Simulated assay, not measured.
Amino acid sequence: MNTTERISKWTYYLLILPIALVFCGWQGWAWWNWVISPTTPTNLAETVGETIQLNIPSGTSTQQIGKDLRSSGLIHSTLAWKIWASWLTVRNPEGAFKAGTYKLSTRESLPAIADDIWQGQVMRLSFTVPEGWSRWDMAKYFDAQGYFSEEEFIKAISQIPKDRYPWLPDGIEHLEGFLYPDTYELASDRVTPQQVITLMLNRFQGVALPLYQQQKDKTTLSLLEWVTLSSIVEKEAVLAEERDRIAGVFSGRLADGMKLEADPTVEYALGIRQTPDKPLTNKQIQITSPYNTYRYPGLPPTPIASPGLSSLKATLSPEKTDYRYFVARYDGTHLFTKTLEEHKAAVNAIRQQRKALKNKPE
């Protein structure tokens, strides 16, 4: 081969090599972009809009996670998953993919999905327990949400974890009143009565308990008495501006040795809720129950609901008042009186008003 032929051959190679490199690079980029890009969901997983809920049980291998993602339509290639998983392991040898239930978007790329599972960004649930709910209200709520049954919750709150919460009062039979009302969030794979109870006791310990500890030298109430009286105030007070006064009425009655005569304690004992059209009857008020504050003096044996922070504060610093009675007006407000005679007159007047409204023609 002469020199001219060699030059022509090398010229050909020099011309074709860049084209080949560009072509291979483009093909590689196209393939990689395809395998790591977002994909379209299949019908092999539970799909909500553009998200897929995927459960990864504890002990699932990296290879199996890739297969599950592929069959769910979240990634294109298990090979690409294996490559990316290896890269994550090299970058962070101490890390690992984490078990749990994930809500993954079909618009996420493979690296984004991998990062979610690597970091344990599991699907989370939110639940709200309003102020004034009893343990029975909570049990029905959690059951309706599908978290666990009423029976499971009631059984769980009858186990008093004094080893972890030594401040809990001695001798209580359940955790009524100490399950702090608030909005909570927890991992979807940890929805058990114990997990929920732990969250709520921790919140009580962090929010309510310090309030009592800071002011316990200024009150004669024990922790149990404080929460119990606060729960009654919570159930009676509809308007925030009346809360301190209602707490003052009950505190005054206790100081004077009077019975509390609080309707919510009777409702709690009976497991009912009175309404304007179906108030408590005289027979109901006479039931034999330690929770019946019409019949027995002092506080009931346990709280009757979960009091909020406002009621807890009001019970520690009640309004100083001569009022010893109040009656609901059916619009959320109360009429406060000082003597039994005034109270009877107020009750009669409000009942007559209610009767007149019911008989008023449309």
Rank of each mutant, 00 (worst) to 15 (best):
L239M: 10
E185C: 03
A96V: 10
G28T: 12
N282R: 13
S230L: 05
G28H: 05
A20I: 12
G59Y: 10
A30F: 06
G271T: 09
Q284Y: 04
T11C: 08
L316E: 01
G171W: 07
E234Y: 04
K162G: 04
E151P: 01
N348T: 10
F23R: 02
A305T: 05
Q119T: 13
A139L: 06
D217G: 09
A237Y: 03
Q64I: 13
Q274L: 13
V327G: 06
G28K: 01
C24Q: 08
E151F: 03
S251R: 11
I52W: 01
R253E: 12
T281L: 11
P264D: 02
K358Y: 09
E5Y: 05
S230Q: 01
P300L: 09
L179Q: 02
T62I: 14
L21R: 03
L110T: 02
T183I: 03
F204P: 00
I172W: 02
I117R: 04
A328E: 04
L201P: 00
F204E: 00
E319R: 08
T220S: 14
E46V: 04
A262L: 09
V233C: 08
L312V: 07
K98A: 08
I232E: 00
H334S: 14
I113F: 04
T333S: 15
P276K: 14
T219G: 09
E242S: 08
G95D: 11
I65F: 07
A328Y: 07
I36E: 05
A20Y: 01
I19V: 15
W118C: 12
R6W: 08
T47F: 02
R354Q: 15
R70N: 11
A99T: 07
T220Y: 01
S72M: 02
N55K: 14
A346D: 07
T51E: 06
H174R: 12
T128V: 11
S311A: 15
E185V: 15
F204M: 05
T78C: 08
W87V: 13
Q353N: 15
S310Y: 05
G25T: 11
F178L: 10
Y180S: 03
R253K: 11
V122D: 01
Q215D: 06
G206P: 00
P193G: 09
Q119I: 04
V129L: 12
G66D: 02
K355S: 11
L211F: 05
S317I: 01
I272T: 14
A99G: 10
Y291S: 08
L340P: 00
T60Q: 10
I36P: 01
L309S: 04
N33F: 05
E131V: 09
V327D: 00
G248A: 06
S311D: 03
G132R: 06
A99H: 11
A30N: 12
A356T: 11
T192V: 10
W10A: 08
L299K: 02
A247V: 08
I287Q: 06
T62K: 07
T333H: 14
G28R: 02
Q353W: 11
L280K: 05
L312Q: 04
Y212S: 09
R135M: 10
Y330M: 11
W87Y: 15
N282F: 10
L223D: 06
S230F: 01
Q159R: 14
Y184E: 07
